[in-house]
Write a protein that binds this DNA or RNA. Sequence first.
DNA 1: GATGAATGAGTGTTCATTCAT
DNA 2: AATGAATGAACACTCATTCAT
Lengths: 197, 197, 197, 197
Amino acid sequence: MSARKTDPAARQGEIVDATVRVIARDGLSGASLRTIAREIGYTTGVVMHYFRDKEQLLVAAAEAVFGPFEELLAEASRMDDAFEGLRRMCVLPLPTTRAKQVIPRIYAQVLASAETEPAFAEAFRQRYGAFRDGVQSLLAAGQRSGAFRADFEPAAQCDLLCALVDGLALHAVSEPSRLPPDRVVALVTQELEKLRA
Amino acid sequence: MSARKTDPAARQGEIVDATVRVIARDGLSGASLRTIAREIGYTTGVVMHYFRDKEQLLVAAAEAVFGPFEELLAEASRMDDAFEGLRRMCVLPLPTTRAKQVIPRIYAQVLASAETEPAFAEAFRQRYGAFRDGVQSLLAAGQRSGAFRADFEPAAQCDLLCALVDGLALHAVSEPSRLPPDRVVALVTQELEKLRA
Amino acid sequence: MSARKTDPAARQGEIVDATVRVIARDGLSGASLRTIAREIGYTTGVVMHYFRDKEQLLVAAAEAVFGPFEELLAEASRMDDAFEGLRRMCVLPLPTTRAKQVIPRIYAQVLASAETEPAFAEAFRQRYGAFRDGVQSLLAAGQRSGAFRADFEPAAQCDLLCALVDGLALHAVSEPSRLPPDRVVALVTQELEKLRA
Amino acid sequence: MSARKTDPAARQGEIVDATVRVIARDGLSGASLRTIAREIGYTTGVVMHYFRDKEQLLVAAAEAVFGPFEELLAEASRMDDAFEGLRRMCVLPLPTTRAKQVIPRIYAQVLASAETEPAFAEAFRQRYGAFRDGVQSLLAAGQRSGAFRADFEPAAQCDLLCALVDGLALHAVSEPSRLPPDRVVALVTQELEKLRA
DNA sequence: GATGAATGAGTGTTCATTCAT
DNA sequence: AATGAATGAACACTCATTCAT
């Protein structure tokens, strides 16, 4: 029906992408195998052919969401400007462009599904934990290099920062008119400035 | 057990309470009419008799969640200590005690499903909007009375505060071991202290 | 669609009967909830309304099959003629009439499904065990009353008898032309005669 | 592991063996093409390549089950001791050793599904018919040679014997604790002794 | 000849909802 | 007013089978 790609990894990626897209659009509860399959023009059998379980598929989707963060984290730790590196990561999950709306949306679903989809939530938590460690290291390194003020504790500040960014992302998704992209970025940047030395 | 309270409003409230309890316990996706009905010993027919739709029931539940916030807001505007009033409201959604876990849990569900359940989301947005206006007024009043510093804009600070608290509440629900009640309250209080004059 | 009976027990019985009929006709693997529901003109939801599980339904069906045996067993122990009582029970499972074909057919399914439908098989085994105990008592009582020869052990003879009758029933189902009702009854009766004093 | 044996007949036999093994282990309903294919490390496509249908595969499996019986029958007709030859054949389907459990188990499945799988049933009936003719000839020859008593009709006795052995085999599979190998063999032998001259 | 991707009908089960009583 | 029987669509998942490669 659609183009016959024979590379199984590509097809697998295609399904994961569709899953992420559907979760972002219809919520986790709306992400049935049928909906996901229809999204790429196949039947549910195809999805089950590439993923043993729905659980496995959701785990793959959770991991896929973190790809950009991990790239950016690696990039940031190589940068000289600790502040700019941190800023980019904080802006990433914000719904600044239509395409990026996926991240905060799926993120909200994951947070809320901790009880109901344990494997999904756990995969997400692990990746998020690793990412948060990276942010914390970034803060500590910035303090040592003199880029950030010394009067905050990296661990606490990291938690505050993550909570703030996630909260803003959620609100911006549910009330885009009150929190347009520019405003959200401005708010976050303003908070980050307070950390500057 | 069934034919006791014949007051329809009371019965309605009973159902809403059960709904809130079930959502907090099993998540929104686990809150089927059957589960809710069983929670109070009735059948699904009873629930449908008092609420046209499941949608209507969810809207009622969403509104019920805001009850404590609105009480606290009214109380806070009567208080002399603007800081303490604000602090109490910020702490409310946090999972501070075992009994209070209902509020942040259902809150997380509501936040996450705002996009996917339109009527639910609208009810939520309206109530939240009113609540946020109250917080903003509180901040402005605190600035005028000299309780808060004058170098922040109430509207922006209100958005930051709400986002921070919501983000922390979500994280605390999904990772209780990393964010135990004491720590969450300490983090929020520490941020609030920065606003003090 | 069909007549609206409001007695829930009657409806439950109706479903069990249909289940037994379908298993006899299509085998256990052909007895899907849909097929069973269609047999009585309802949807699968109805079946699930009266039986929590398919397992529960199968257990009920297994028990229903033993109804006639238990009646006959009670009757036989009240009879004077031990031989005739035993004969009737041995003939019951044989496919002598079109209507009675149900018993050996469902029986074969149960025997073969021991591994695959444990609850079904277990329910059947228990009932069969009780029934076999009755047959054994009948043999022992017949020996004491002088109706049967004294040179056989009741337990062993009971097992042989049950195996023989079940084996004949199975063969008669799969090869009706080789083993017409008359012949099967004659074979069994001839074996029983050997037990006579 | 895959491209070893290219001899099509060998591959076919390998698949049939796997099928018999799976049916014995998981029952006929558990014998999906996927399970069978996985048993020998292939995919379902391979199985379908060597057998037009699943039906064809089952027919081949049913026929394979009769292999040992036919060997034993040929051997028995060459033996001097008619009694011993008969006894060996009657014991074969009984679950006497752990390794031999395959035969009675698959045998039970075949018997039970005779009605529900037409082609399977037909293959089974034909082979069983030929086998039963052999047993009957054995009985008649034994009578002529004076090994067996002369006061039974070979045809009727053959049917009784087959039914008894099949019934015991089924019961032994479904209730191994009540009918351990020793006991089953003893029961059958005891019945056979009655035929001795 | 041999493979595994893809299909579509099927499984048991849950769901919100309707409706006669 | 209140019930629970009934519906039909949806769910995740399995199945035998087809077909392009």
